[in-house]
Write a protein that binds this DNA or RNA. Structure first.
Lengths: 339, 339
DNA sequence: GAGCGGAAGTTATACGTAACACTTGGAGGC
DNA sequence: GCCTCCAAGTGTTACGTATAACTTCCGCTC
């Protein structure tokens, strides 16, 4: 009968199995072939099971100087309900000096007060998306291997980058609209300083310029339905010939644009076309369903992690852009013929 | 000039400052009042700054046997884009034997392969919501302080629970609809085995029964727009008098119901009313805006964390239900008067 | 001038693990 | 009959930190 108040250690298992702590470590670490007999190994495994042994990861991490864990940094929280749960919980936790780590069951969400303080205990590398400069400085200060998602490849950080081919997506949207006959476009731009949004504006301008007689009007809005509504309404009631299509930086903005258009009495797509970018569930929830650019988020994640693994293994990561795909639905049509 | 290849330790700082490692620990741990002179303390801080010293959290955690970090377990991933990023990244990472931790910048997302394997290194407690039984068993095996969110308070787990007053929300919805004159209701239920959904069905039935001549038809659907669409269409084309209102277990189901109703040529709310539950951004993105029950997710999170803190500090957590609020929008109206 | 107490440190140790270097007891070769 | 070699382990150490216990020096009091 061992002390049951505290968690069992490998030494407790060793004692229970009548072997040394080293043997336990070998067996449970799966490094015993030819070093420990099969019968002894089984005895150790049984003892570990009986005691409910779980290795202490803090000790293991300290010993190995390595954690087999990486940090994925995302720009902001898109989840709605559990984002709120996290925010509230994290606030109280912080007040108690605690950090919070989210776990997605079975897929996935994320962690902590100060990511680099509370995470460095368990990090071999970082994947970061569209981050603030100061956070990046903190990461670099840690000298952790870093992969950037959707960031300027010419940025001076010297980190590997993995990007969605947003530029091509914008080209596809533009080609689609130009082909339908649209010439005057309202660009509903996300009011967020991020490379990925700069690309949209730049590429839209560049590709529209290839056709003569085109015109782009720009409205900026925070990424929220209400923000998009207000900005769109203002832009469309401004003087001058009305745009015949609204190109939105993402689907959420498009949902806001829908509301503004309804309020202005404009029918989609008869009076005005709308496009999004992301292909969220929202895109098919609204009426008419949204013509948008599908981003393969999973593939994106896979490529990002592959790149990080390459860096960790000393290989050169490949900087390939991930293809995207235009999905044409009911929100785009030829512009109305002028009376 | 110290060795610069490896990360500086507190001993390196001590050497640089000409003091013992213990002194460094005291100064940086802010426990030096009356034990170290102000000038020495400043010298230590300067050395730490110069070397870019960051304490090794694995070592600290090992030493303290405590991590000031808790794990928040959520039932599934609601985020769309970054959920996919996480899934893909986690898959590749797992293939390499790595775990993944998400970090929300600046608010918040979460972590890992096997939550209890990769997290126990840094956990003092757990907040879990609607979890699978096996995962719960794993948690209990860890003997970690546990708070359950939205779970059966009479469950045999002996954990503290913090719940939203979903029952009251359902009562408010029912009262609202009965007051408008609705008697035949379609309950679009989430096909997910969870206490929180059982409550909806039970409470709806109980409260409807208080008014004579009422009738509930039930349709089950997975929580997705397409699933809800199919289930709703099937339920409303079935024989018998058509329900005049659809009560949905959450907003996403309601969005699917909208599509089904449009397809059937029914106008909302003139021909049929719809209600949701959650008050997501989606609720105001669809047309007409959805009458739903607002859940204060942040407050929920705060209460969950308060409860966990109480457990950690040996206090008795209070098991209060968190109030919810009916938000009446454009999707509900009196039932059409029969011809 | 002996003794005391506090300031300003230092020394030593333990947390739990992984792995290197060593031991021991036979079996087999010549 | 002796040497070698291998299987099957064990003893020991280090990872970096926090802290309890100890030391040393000095200024004061009586």
């Amino acid at each position: 009968m061992a002390r049951s108040s505290t968690r069992p250690t490998s030494r407790d298992v060793a004692q229970a199995a009548g072997v040394s702590q080293a043997a336990v470590s070998l067996v449970l670490g799966d490094k015993w072939r030819g070093r420990v007999s099969e019968t002894t190994a089984e005895r150790v495994r049984e003892a570990a099971r009986d005691l409910g042994y779980r290795p202490n990861l803090a000790a293991r991490n300290l010993r190995l100087g390595r954690t087999r864990t990486v940090l994925l940094v995302v720009p902001a929280l898109t989840t709605e309900f559990f984002a709120g749960v996290y925010t509230g919980a994290a606030r109280v936790a912080a007040a108690h000096g605690f950090g919070v780590v989210l776990y997605p069951s079975p897929e996935g969400i994320g962690p902590a007060r100060d990511p680099f303080a509370s995470a460095q205990a368990a990090l071999d590398g970082v994947i970061a998306s569209s981050m603030a400069a100061d956070a990046l400085t903190a990461i670099r200060g840690d000298q952790l291997p870093l992969v950037m998602l959707d960031s300027d490849p010419t940025g001076s950080l010297g980190a590997a980058t993995v990007n969605l081919d947003i530029a091509d997506g914008v080209r596809q949207v533009t080609t689609h609209l130009l082909g339908l006959g649209h010439r005057r476009i309202l660009h509903l731009a996300a009011d967020v300083p991020s490379w990925t949004f700069e690309v949209r504006a730049r590429e839209l301008a560049a590709h529209m310029a290839t056709t003569p007689g085109t015109e782009i009007r720009t409205a900026r809005a925070p990424i929220s339905i209400d923000g998009a509504l207000t900005a769109t309404e203002a832009a469309l009631t401004a003087p001058g010939p009305r745009p015949t299509a609204v190109v939105c930086d993402d689907d959420k903005l498009a949902a806001g644009a829908y509301k503004a258009l309804r309020r202005l009495g404009l029918r989609i797509p008869d009076d005005i076309s709308v496009t999004g970018l992301d292909d969220l569930a929202l895109a098919t929830a609204i009426d008419p369903e949204l013509t948008t650019v599908r981003l393969d988020a999973e593939l994106f994640g896979e490529h990002g992690m592959h790149a990080l693994m390459a860096v960790l293994e000393g290989r050169e990561p490949e900087n390939r852009d991930i293809p995207v795909e235009l999905v044409v639905r009911g929100s785009t049509a030829p512009p109305p013929t002028p009376a």
